[in-house]
Amino acid sequence: MPITDDLSIQQNLVDGAVATLIFAHGAGANMDSAFMTEFTQLLNEREINVIRFNFPYMQQRLIDGKRRPPGKMDVLKESYIERIKQYSAELPLFIGGKSMGSRVAAMVAGEEKVNGVVCIGYPFHPQKKPEKLRLEPLQEADKPVVIVQGDRDPLGNKADILDYDLANNITVHFVEDGDHDLKPRVKSGFTHFQHKITAANVIKAFIKEQS
């Protein structure tokens, strides 16, 4: 439950937690989106505290109802760093996010409190522009990074990623037939919820290993 007056932050805490994850939303959906809410619950069930927050542009959108693009990357990074600085608990801290949120997290991984980075659907490149790679944040991250990626993600599919020269501190776990939201097609035999559970289990194992 929230333990702050800041309406742009939501803290979901559990008894016996082993770590805390600051979990940032993607470009088009806020911290209370169905994906963010359901995934937070799955992480809570795995003894991980979750702190969600809205980037400033998204919080302003909620206030006035006007759609607007994400702010400049420097503003997004500053917002994430502020959340990290606010963290004062003794539990190990991890940072990450969904899509754009994971990219910003990778960029601020050098903050002293951070033990590792969690990425769900990392945007390796813009859609239909595979030549415009966004590997630099991952390559420069000096902490362990785990990425859970749908193997047909249009922002970085399995075939493409296996050709990238990723650093040794980066681990990528692919979910079969998953898209950018990890959602598989019906014919795959998998369900979206199954892939979310897999992702939560991968993250729990990563956090235990790095704590």
Rank of each mutant, 00 (worst) to 15 (best):
P154V: 05
L138T: 01
K158A: 12
F206H: 00
K66W: 08
D179E: 02
V117D: 03
P126H: 12
N44L: 09
N201T: 15
G96R: 05
H25G: 08
R185I: 09
P56F: 04
E140L: 12
I161R: 06
K204Q: 15
T40H: 01
K208G: 04
S102I: 02
P92W: 02
F53P: 04
D160F: 11
H25Y: 11
L135D: 07
R83T: 06
H180I: 10
D179G: 08
A159C: 08
E38H: 14
M100Q: 09
E136P: 01
Y164D: 05
P92D: 00
N30M: 07
A159M: 13
Y122D: 07
P184A: 07
D15S: 12
K143D: 00
T4L: 09
D153M: 03
G116K: 00
N49M: 04
E111Q: 10
I3V: 13
A24E: 06
N168Y: 11
Q210K: 14
M31Q: 15
Y122W: 03
L42H: 04
A29P: 02
D15Q: 11
L166A: 00
I120W: 11
R83S: 02
G178Y: 04
L62H: 06
F55N: 01
L21H: 04
Q210M: 06
M1P: 13
S79Y: 10
K98Y: 08
N44E: 05
N157K: 10
M58F: 06
E45H: 14
K128F: 15
K85C: 05
V18M: 11
L43Q: 03
N168K: 15
E112S: 12
I81W: 10
T198F: 14
N201S: 14
V50S: 08
T4R: 02
C119S: 03
T40I: 01
Q60G: 10
V117H: 04
